[in-house]
Amino acid sequence: MAACDPKNTKYTYNYSPTSDAVTVHWFIGPNADGTKTITAGTFVTDGGRDWTVKVDADYSTGNVVAQSKLYYGFQATHMGISYTSPIGHFRAIDSKNTFAELTYATVSCSNWGFGMFNAYDTLSKIEELDFYVHAGDNIYEYKDLRYPDDHMKVRTQITDPPHEIASLDDYRRRYRLYRNDASMQALGAHAPLISIADDHEYTNNAWLTGAENH
């Protein structure tokens, strides 16, 4: 789960079900169990978008108190089995933007093989965090053991896919690998992400007609 791109009365978020479910139910509410909702709806997804879900949820009609904590989650049923997502939360901002101050973190250059994703875990424990900015290089495109090499790599799992990513399926598989990291998931559920693409999201040191390795 990831949460993100906050606006004063809206909240966009996305979530990847683990099956090829087609209809995903979502909610935003004042408590984590989803028994009371401020707004809710459904989103139909399929393999054409890698089963991701994006919702632009308007909670402005919910009489939400500024800075109050709101919860959101997803549920889908596929082949008779119900799947429920972890619950995420964020702090509401009202239409008058009455925040006296905002607390945010900046991260960048997240190379799965090098580890140090514990930084995400640390941020997920900071209660007052309003959002975090990822300034680029959310993923790295290299094949396994290229960067980091076998001396520097801290993970025992083989990088997926094992080759340098170049096709749409490759990029999707690499995002899935990164998003399976528990620390990254914890931060995604804790605070909205404002994400920026740099070069490693597609290839290193790109210029007008090519790139370092191409």
Binding site: R49, D50, E164, L168, D170, R172, Y175, L193, N213
Partner: peptide, 23 residues
Amino acid sequence: EGDYYERMHFAMKAFFEYMPIRE
């Protein structure tokens, strides 16, 4: 390795699918 622009297209499509950016 694929055509460079095709590769960039695939990369950005995946980025917008997985990154929480308003479409």
